[in-house]
Design a protein around this nucleic acid. Structure first.
Lengths: 345, 345
DNA sequence: CAGAGGACCTGTATCGTTACAGATTTCGCA
DNA sequence: TGCGAAATCTGTAACGATACAGGTCCTCTG
């Protein structure tokens, strides 16, 4: 029996044609499965020469640890989940983020899983799903709110995550954010420098944290540079481009129309331009505009628009790094970054 | 011993606070683990009332099968991998595809994993990775070539996949494609209808299958409608927008400049417009242009451009459905779709 | 009333990996 | 010479699920 059990794992040659496993390497090296496992993770109780041999054979046969085996045994999924709204308007923005995240994950064992949700349903759903099923080791979320229940939930469960955007709940967690306050402040400054005084802001939706940031910067700019706000509260960046265009055109035709416009995103800018021009006004002459730029298009077709690039790819990279660091136990307070161009950090 | 082993699985109450497993349900119902497993998959040898009871308890405790367990035992990953080029130029296009894929997968057990690669490395690498590690049950690829080695490899291994774009190797496999031949043909027609005769095509890169399709449609259009081609072979859709703009401006200034332009993608159109205008020409007056439209921007800022929407979201949906059907054993010949607007299929 | 057969349920072994608790050998030192 | 520590190596059990090969009853037939 002793003899038999001793043979059990090492003697039976693993079926050929299959993926190599620890058993394969154990058979080839004549070692035990445990030894091979520990050798590959450079454990201190394995001899140097043995490690070398094991590594050599592993490389030769193209060994990759079986993710299901590891996951079942250790609970580690080696997955980062990006929680994405499926509404097409936003995905355009988020796609460079996917690139940034992938760039970072490509240098690690992590895979990127897209966990979608619809804004028509509860944004907590996907988070709950990941927590309940243990689908990932870490999560990245966007559209962050000041009192974000997703953040509260993950903090409570001590689950690693990073947010694109900040919260305002007194909870310390990893985030990456664009400095929207500074953006709006600078935007006002640049418009005032061009002699504009009546400024209209297409702001982010009320519920999101960066709405506040942008408003704060906007109002501080108005005060510091001596301009006034033209109300534009019927639409925000979550509205369709059509709605924005119509609202903008109406504002430009109304008495006391703005002579300066700020767009809180690259997408909105297009609709604003269309609205301005539909009102018979000309960019650079009657009105100036400052916008975030997400792709090159606005720069090509309306060079008069003063634009500032928000680097979503960088955001993806930073968030991926932050979440992994968090998984590795690094304190959240060290994993918070704010970006502002030039930002090839 | 008999008694002891009988108790082994059912008697020990699973640790509380953990995710429920089959063992949890087995304990709660007093059934065996196997029975619970089979009840949940509606096996024919389980009593109707038992199934009902098991389902009820499973729902109550929020049971989700452990993916690692299933994967380890059965080899089924319940993962579809989307293989994506990380070059930012293309990701803009592909992002609505992610939405479409997610929409379909959301109704299934499948997760979407992004497997990235850089065009600077071998495009076979990510495919080999998935095949070797068994990272997914099915794969979706883009940038399909006439003799695509990725397709050949996956066919050879009998691995389920779908391609965005067709191949030309005599191999039958699932695909979804936009009818680029018809697009180019119609584009020529519409330009000729506007009196244009000297037509320039910004074509897809040589290596990709739809380059041929588009050229074929283009040339057939030229013949049928009596127009001539203005050569434009120094750039293609893989070049940077800057390069395209410069080349276009040069072409518009050269003797025998085109009076009609066709852009094989929405992105390229912007650069072409910029090139045309840099040469001092005006859209709609001196030159007409037909383009694919990927987002609304070109439609807003240059309504003179005749545009036709290529529905990437639909492509994502079709490909996801096709790959899953293929996994389920449906013949590839039934999983090939071609789209052309209006295409809300 | 035996026993064949159906309806329903169950234990064991296994997928690949790792935590844990030993084994074995070697070596230094008293 | 003896013996404990150090250095290496190893088997077992477990993670959660399922394929497989039985087990019990119970019913119906002859």
């Amino acid at each position: 029996m002793d003899e038999k059990s001793k043979q059990k794992h090492t003697a039976a040659p693993p079926a050929a044609g299959h993926r190599p496993t620890l058993k394969t390497i154990a058979f080839m090296t004549g070692l035990g499965i445990t030894t091979v496992s520990r050798a590959l993770k450079d454990a201190p109780d394995i001899g140097a020469e043995t490690k070398e041999r094991v590594r050599l054979v592993a490389r030769q046969v193209g060994y990759h640890p079986n993710r299901a085996g590891v996951r079942l045994r250790t609970g580690k999924t080696n997955v980062i989940s990006l929680i994405l709204s499926l509404e097409e308007e936003f995905i355009g923005l988020t796609s460079p983020m996917v690139v940034g995240i992938s760039e970072v994950l490509a240098t690690t064992q992590y895979h990127l899983v897209i966990t979608p949700y619809s804004m028509k349903s509860d944004p907590l759903d996907p988070v709950r799903y990941v927590l309940e099923t243990g689908a990932a080791d870490g999560v990245i979320i966007s559209r962050t709110e000041p009192k974000d229940p997703r953040v509260a939930l993950m903090m409570e469960r001590n689950f690693p995550f990073g947010t694109h955007g900040r919260t305002d709940m007194g909870l310390v967690h990893p985030f990456h954010d664009f400095d929207n306050e500074r953006f709006a402040y600078d935007a006002v400054r640049r418009l005032v420098e061009r002699g504009r005084r009546r400024i209209m802001l297409l702001h982010p939706p009320q519920g999101l944290t960066y709405h506040m940031h942008m408003r704060t910067g906007f109002e501080r700019g108005l005060r510091d540079f001596g301009a006034t706000a033209v109300p534009f509260n019927t639409v925000d960046l979550d509205h369709s481009l059509d709605e924005i265009r119509v609202a903008c055109e109406a504002a430009m035709r109304a008495p006391g129309a703005p002579d300066g416009v700020i767009s809180g995103s690259g997408g909105g800018a297009v609709a604003l331009v269309a609205g301005i021009e539909a009102a018979g006004l000309q960019l650079g002459r009657d009105v100036d505009m400052v916008s975030k730029q997400s792709n090159d298009i606005i720069r090509w077709l309306r060079p008069e628009v003063i634009s500032m690039r928000e680097n979503f790819r960088l955001a993806g990279r930073e968030l991926a790094k932050a979440v992994i660091a968090r998984i590795d136990g690094q304190p959240a307070s060290e994993l918070q970054t704010l970006s502002y161009p030039p930002d090839e950090a």
